[in-house]
Design a protein around this nucleic acid. Structure first.
Lengths: 203, 203
DNA sequence: GTTGAATTGGAGCGTTCGCTACAGAATTAT
DNA sequence: ATAATTCTGTAGCGAACGCTCCAATTCAAC
């Protein structure tokens, strides 16, 4: 019983997310966001609340579309060790495609220290990623692809740290050799494959 | 033959660095900086140039006083493997003391993508840290404390990535257990100590 | 003591910031 | 049609931004 929106909420959120992702919170103005979304400032405020509220929606949107989507895509479809390996390799490739890094890491550095609500979101999502790595490590051990001597908790902690580190390097030191070497060495803590998960079975 | 400065340049640079470190580039105003330094805006511009020039001086100042100082303190005084271990442990402790993270990592994320000059500084300093880890790894291998099978280049790349990752987590997910676990697992790529560098010699 | 160069604080430049008031346009319920 | 309700663009609010001008001040050189 009223005038409907002339724009698609999700598309607009995508555009805003891209802006925040590229330039960060402080350096992105609401006018910039409106321009990217094709909206006037008034519509932005009407549809999304204030700048901070829009940012949290963008952050959630980004994390659902990227990190969580990657987890839910890889975890059920790949053997656990390969899921870990593929996750890291995809992060490396994405980091080399564009130098935007990871909006989660960016937000953790820029926003989290000064905003407890956003900090809680970030901590929760980092916990999700850590849990993914731990589940995969444990499942890999049960499947025999990862040595039982590996500590799943510390491994998940290192892998989470590595992902965040790769995202920083993507912005400040984006060399393929560096990112690939770091990822490969991080994966080496899983030990030599007890089976050959990435190759076809060779009798 | 003129009026001398009423403030100490280095002390003022310290104060400005602290501000930039805590709040980042965009969120720190020149008025904030002047207040921290005890200077009027005019004096800031007179002594340090514009905001961007001041930032680069602060970044250099920070890196000399922290990263480079830590390298030059640890590398000559400790066995190479211990130098690496101590470096990471100090990073963990510093990260838990305050949640400011690392100004290098912060700048890499916020400033580097939009400023090629600062990006070059950041890349150079990251290269320095990477070299430190590589030198120590190679020296540790010569001394027999690190297995010869370890790849020094990839190891240095992982350690650099880990340091950056730890600094992000310090801001967004600052749990001691997490940081210590990640550091311990990263160090595990050096392999089991062939000698016991951290303990006294036990016959 | 005089001169001259550099520093200092205050005022203010123009611009942009986040945000809002308001009037008109658009759509559904009646 | 009319009314009710929501969206949209324009204009503009006060505040803060980076930066600069300028008169007053300070101290070394002479």
């Amino acid at each position: 019983m009223a005038r409907p929106r002339a724009f698609d909420q999700s598309t607009a959120l995508d555009a805003a997310t891209q802006r925040f992702w590229a330039a960060g919170y402080a350096a992105t103005s609401v006018r910039d966001l409106g321009e990217s979304m094709g909206l006037s400032q008034a519509s932005v405020y009407n549809a999304f609340g204030d700048k901070r509220a829009l940012f949290t929606q963008c952050l959630d949107h980004y994390l659902d579309a990227n990190m969580r989507a990657r987890i839910t895509r890889l975890e059920p479809s790949l053997p656990p060790r390969q899921a870990i390996e593929t996750f890291l390799h995809e992060i490396v490739e994405r980091s080399l495609e564009n130098r935007l890094g990871c909006m989660l890491a960016n937000a953790a550095q820029e926003v989290a220290p000064h905003d407890t609500v956003i900090a809680a979101i970030i901590a929760e999502r980092m916990g999700e990623l850590e849990s993914f790595f731990r589940r995969c490590t444990e499942a890999g051990q049960r499947a025999g692809a990862i040595a039982a001597s590996v500590d799943p908790i510390a491994t998940a902690q290192l892998l989470l740290t590595t992902v965040m580190g790769l995202r920083v390097l993507a912005r400040g030191y984006p060399l393929r050799d560096l990112l690939e070497g770091a990822a490969r060495q991080a994966l080496s803590v899983l030990g030599s494959p007890t089976t050959q998960p990435t190759e076809r079975n060779t009798p």
